[in-house]
Computed example of a mutant assay.
Amino acid sequence: MANKKFVKIFLIISLCTIIVFFIYIKFLKKNNSKIVQKEESEIIYNSNLIKDVEYSTKDKDGNEYFIKAKEGEIDFSNPNIIFLKKVKATIKLIGSDNVIIVSNFGKYNSENYDTIFSKNVIINYLNNKITGEYLDFSLERNSMIISKNVTYNNLENVLKADVIEINIETKDTKIFMHESKKKVNIKSKN
């Protein structure tokens, strides 16, 4: 009878030990693996930063587009998109002077070369300077659309508007306000 009691106690202790061991392995190993996965994802996230980014392209007409940035970060959801910081672009147009664009931030599409410039955007072309907060530049559409607090300066005038839209190919320019009640403000420097 003592042997039967001893065997029952031994089986209960063994069963409890196996259950505790199983729980330990099952749950603690999962928690450790989650920590490792989190650390790996942080490493991957940090590895998509690129210092001193440079891209260049040439369109079918021979115009060249160069873009440089102090830092770039590839978008995880779309690897063709690169978010840029401290951006400078140069557009070398055939038969014309260069257009220089600088901004604090940019969003560059490496597939179609379209670029969104934002925060403290400055465009310099000949004796013209356009400033604003947002520029949508597209080689595909042949357009530059600058908006938000737009100011245009040349040797003779200062112009303030909501939007300036320029066709890169024809140089046709549209200047307008978002609200029909507001008017474009032009002042002569002379």
Rank of each mutant, 00 (worst) to 15 (best):
I13H: 05
I13D: 06
I13L: 14
I13C: 14
I13K: 10
S14H: 02
S14N: 13
L15D: 03
L15M: 14
L15S: 15
L15C: 12
C16T: 09
C16Y: 08
C16K: 12
C16R: 02
T17S: 15
T17D: 06
T17Q: 07
T17L: 07
I18P: 13
I18H: 11
I19T: 01
I19W: 02
I19D: 04
I19F: 03
I19H: 02
I19P: 06
V20H: 01
V20S: 09
V20F: 13
F21E: 01
F21A: 03
F22L: 12
F22K: 01
F22T: 06
F22G: 06
I23T: 08
I23C: 12
I23R: 11
Y24T: 01
Y24I: 05
I25P: 00
I25H: 08
K26Q: 07
F27G: 02
L28V: 09
L28Y: 07
K29C: 00
K29W: 06
K29R: 09
K29N: 12
K30L: 10
K30Y: 09
K30S: 04
K30I: 10
N31G: 08
N32G: 13
N32A: 05
N32L: 15
N32C: 11
N32S: 13
S33L: 10
K34N: 13
K34A: 14
K34E: 15
K34R: 06
K34Y: 14
I35H: 01
I35D: 11
I35Q: 06
I35M: 04
V36A: 05
V36S: 07
V36G: 04
Q37I: 13
Q37T: 12
Q37F: 03
K38R: 15
K38Y: 10
K38Q: 15
K38G: 14
K38A: 13
K38P: 11
E39W: 05
E39D: 14
E39F: 04
E40S: 06
E40F: 00
E40N: 13
S41T: 12
S41Q: 12
S41G: 07
S41W: 12
S41R: 15
E42D: 10
E42T: 06
I43H: 01
I43D: 04
I43A: 04
I43M: 06
I43G: 08
I43N: 04
I44S: 03
I44T: 03
I44C: 00
Y45V: 06
N46E: 05
N46R: 11
N46F: 07
S47E: 03
S47D: 12
S47F: 04
S47V: 07
S47Q: 05
N48V: 15
N48L: 08
N48M: 05
L49I: 12
L49E: 10
L49F: 14
L49W: 07
L49G: 11
I50W: 15
I50C: 04
K51N: 01
K51R: 13
K51D: 08
